[in-house]
Nucleic acid binder design. Structure first.
Lengths: 205, 205, 205, 205
DNA sequence: CATGAATGAGAATTCATTCAT
DNA sequence: AATGAATGAATTCTCATTCAT
């Protein structure tokens, strides 16, 4: 039953890390077919057996990758919150986008490739912390800028901006000949949020 | 080498159709694992051998599915254009969204499931006609509503609306407990476009 | 679901046969480790894939072997019944034992090796027909020799003779230097049954 | 090469014991798949490394289990001999059977499970001492009851009774719905021996 | 002495593709 | 044209055994 060992020595902790690492490299290299256990083990420089010492199956590797992504997102957003809350919406959106792009492109586009190839099976679980930090950001932003609190449909608009915004960024960054540059996209999204807020404010005034 | 026959007789054409059909059914039933050649052949009611008479490999079936999707999109949008061009932006966006939802959900969510499970490998090729018809729609809309032609950044905004909008819809329709209803989403996107246009118009006036 | 094809062409029926055949050969050659899918496929002269066309898994091959054994036992006992019922008990037991030995040693000890190596997992299922034919034999013997019907404990004695007798034969035939010869064993068992009947008859007279 | 230590200290002896113990527990729990080195080591509460300090390989653990079984049989039979030699045959057989059943069922059916799952590979070696004690029993019985010494075929009959009797007991105790109870079986075997002796005596008188 | 991380050959099973009929 | 039997490389996962610490 309790067959998977939690790493107890520092050597084994390193092994776990290198396997997850290898998972990212494999996806980056070979797309959605890259997550073969053999391939991952090879890249990690360990044997298949070792891989299975720490992960019950293929799935769990993907889970670990997810988890790492989620915590990296949190680690990126969290410290930005104070800064963002002091910006006007447009600037905040722009700033967040560039930060997000950097995250997506970090380590040879590690996360970008996952989003690209693994689609829906990538952010399968572990999205909770991400939702929490984004929700936290929204809350703090509103309490620092209470004038926006009377905007209508905040949850819906947030859903659109987040889901749509991320999709746009992933799409743009993945395309070989993107019809719009990332800067244009960022500016566009910022404008869009700006207009939306201005429009929404007027509508409820 | 030139082994794949182009179907020239009606029976053959029917076979090809049923294979592509089977592809959709398979994905709907078994997700991303559904596209096994055996499974598809079984569902189509033909033998594996027959399948390979018409498709050189697995890939080509997916291609054909893509192609059908693309032409269905075109077939859906094309006839709507005259109607849409006569609507105010908000209504046009809303109408388009509902039409798109119907398309995604047609035949037991055939296309929705493809977008859901096959991710980026689904709209791999054959997007050209889709781009063309959307671009056509935009052109015609602008020539019927010339006042919007001076909006800034139309291509960028279109990119955002289309990529982001589709992603939002697919996401919303795929979720088990979506945090926002489809109607709310449609209204939100419509508002967003509305605000954007109003804002953009003012900015350039 | 219905993935395993029932052989429809004569070629495939031959394939199934040769796979089961190979199962027996493999066990005879390599003991309990012989039932590897690869090994069996090799011996059968087919590829692993082909093996899995007809058997869902390893288990099913063993099942088929069982089934064949069971039907061979029935085919051996059935036609002997008329003859056996006309013999005195001692002779009947002896005759049956030699028939059984021949069956166990047929085809290079095919069944003997299975009993030897696979132990309890061999006669896992499909024993029903065997039980039926033995019970049939007993019935017919008693109705032809009604004087024995008043023997006490017939079911218990039958259990002992059958289970014990088979175990003795398998054991004797498997040993490299058996302490008793098969003929001695046969004679001994026959005597034992004889004494038992005589004793039992006297006890109830 | 001479790597395996003979346990010389009491702690080591305890370790060896607990490993063999674990072997029995593992088989009882998981059947023939239970004898994995990992599993045994876990149950024994030692590491795999330690296991290999005392046993060169899996085989040797099984050997040790065999050996223990053999010595337990001897330890059970030996002290019964004086008592048994003073009983009439029927009682002696019955007594021995119940003693044997107790041994098979001891410690949650430890030995019964081994006989059940490991089949022929269980009493692989180390049967010599068992044979010796049984032969000793027979000798002593005959010298205390010399009237039976003129029975014909004593070795053959003994073979049948022992091999057949054990098989019957293991079979009966292993079955979920045994067609005969253990008591019936014991009585039946006792009767059988009784009849055999009576018959045999008469035959040679 | 003891540990447990690491190994890697090998097992079962799948699946895209080919080919004889 | 159509069939479906056959293929075999590739994949996931296991387990007896070794070895550095």
């Amino acid at each position: 039953m309790a067959k998977i060992r939690k790493p107890q020595q520092s050597r084994s902790k390193q092994t776990v890390t290198s396997i997850v690492e290898a998972g990212f490299i494999a996806v980056a290299r070979d797309g959605s077919d890259g997550l073969g256990t053999r391939k991952v083990a090879d890249i990690a420089g360990v044997s298949v057996g070792t891989l299975y010492e720490y992960f019950a199956n293929k799935e769990e590797i993907l889970d670990a990758m997810n988890q790492q992504f989620a915590s990296d997102v949190v680690a990126m957003v969290q410290p930005l919150i104070p800064e963002l809350t002091r910006m006007p919406p447009r600037d905040a959106v722009r700033t967040l986008q560039f930060a997000f792009r950097d995250l997506l492109q970090r380590d040879n586009g590690r996360y970008l490739n996952c989003a690209r190839w693994l689609g829906r099976q990538f952010p399968s679980a572990h999205v909770e912390p991400v939702k929490r930090v984004l929700s936290d950001l929204a809350m703090q932003y509103l309490s620092h800028n209470p004038q926006y609190a009377r905007l209508p449909n905040i949850p819906v608009m947030a859903y659109i901006i987040i889901q749509g915004g991320i999709a746009c960024m992933v799409s743009q960054l993945s395309e070989d000949n993107p019809p719009v540059s990332f800067d244009q996209l960022a500016e566009g999204l910022a404008d869009m949020v700006g207009y939306m807020i201005e429009g929404g404010m007027k509508a409820t005034s």
